[in-house]
């Protein structure tokens, strides 16, 4: 059947965005010699990693979490503390931090996912605030509000992965791999099940989809991606403070997701880049950024609820058709 062939055909079209992004990422360190800009590029990749998880959670399950920065921070602090205070090798510390975050997310998932709408937002926000308070108060471990210093760098076979250029490659390599895995998933059976979730429970459940398990898995996966970004962040900057993981960072992550379009994997990368580059263009004072993020979030939700990127794409298509 011809339709059958078309349905599975053109794998190169799928690979194209990866090829473009990989090439761009490979060339960037040669084009961008300013280390500040290069580290900004790494930061974009890290945020995009966390946004990817959040994007799945909000886009598929319709669960808006304003506590994602807490998982980001949990990864960072757990890995930081294990290396600084307990002398664990970095690789092992990251593995332990991810396991810990996964377990915490698993415990939190069931009660959290019972909530919906505002209640879920408030609960996750509360979670983030508790996390920040613990980071500030538990001084002996976390270094309190002045932060945790002396986190060791990452290295592999004698290569320092925390140098600006290598870290940039590491982050974007990890991000591309994660995007690839996620898009594999979304195109197949579990992905179709995930995409049916926000329809309400009646339909997926009647189709044999264990909705609760799927939602828990999404929640844990989103937490793990945020924590992975956090681990990498900690061993790159080699210093972390509670301020980097507070609720404003969560707000920023949600805004990035909304800008890119819910459930749109590439959109999340765009959203992360857009929001992190914005202050550079605007030369904005850091203090007004939360305000700006809130404003952007509001504007996006009001005028293009499907995301800024899809809206721009639509506009471009209309203009193109108008000319053609």
């Amino acid at each position: 059947m011809s339709a059958g062939r078309t349905a599975a055909a053109r794998p190169w079209r799928r690979l194209l965005p990866y090829a473009i992004l990989a090439t761009a990422a490979a060339l960037t360190p040669f084009a961008v010699t300013d280390t500040y800009l290069l580290s900004l590029g790494s930061l974009i990749g890290l945020f995009a990693l966390a946004v990817t998880g959040l994007n799945l959670l909000i886009g598929m399950a319709g669960q808006v979490s304003l506590g994602q920065a807490a998982f980001f921070g949990l990864g960072a602090y757990a890995s930081g503390i294990l290396t600084v205070h307990h002398g664990l090798p970095v690789g092992l510390a990251i593995a332990a931090a991810l396991t810990l975050t996964g377990l915490v997310a698993l415990v939190l998932a069931a009660p959290t996912l019972k909530l919906e709408g505002h209640n879920l937002v408030m609960a996750t926000l509360g979670l983030n605030m508790i996390f920040t308070i613990v980071c500030i108060q538990w001084e002996s471990m976390t270094g309190g509000s002045s932060g945790l210093f002396g986190i060791p760098a990452m290295s592999l076979a004698g290569v320092n992965l925390s140098s600006d250029r290598n870290f940039f490659y590491l982050v974007w390599g990890v991000l591309l791999a994660v995007l690839w895995l996620c898009s594999n998933l979304l195109r197949t059976r579990p992905g179709r099940a995930l995409r049916s979730l926000h329809q309400g429970d009646l339909l997926p459940v009647s189709l044999g989809i264990p909705v609760v398990q799927y939602k828990i898995a999404l929640f844990v996966a989103a937490a793990l991606l945020a924590a992975l970004a956090g681990c990498l962040y900690a061993h790159y900057l080699q210093f972390i403070s509670p301020h980097s993981f507070d609720m404003f960072v969560s707000l920023q992550l949600v805004t990035m997701t909304a800008v890119g379009g819910l459930g749109n994997l590439w959109g999340g990368v765009f959203g992360a880049a857009f929001l992190l580059l914005l202050p550079e263009w605007l030369h904005a004072v850091p203090d007004v950024m939360p305000l700006l993020h809130g404003l952007i979030l509001m504007i996006v939700l009001m005028f293009c609820p499907r995301g800024l990127l899809p809206a721009l794409k639509n506009m471009a298509r209309k203009i193109w058709r108008g000319h053609g």
């Binding site: 059976r189 179709r192 099940a193 189709l207 044999g208």
Partner: peptide, 14 residues
């Protein structure tokens, strides 16, 4: 979606 219960390959395979 109607064939969801017929799948045997797990999440990691996908």
């Amino acid at each position: 979606l109607g064939l969801h219960t017929q799948g045997r390959v797990g999440v990691f395979g996908h």
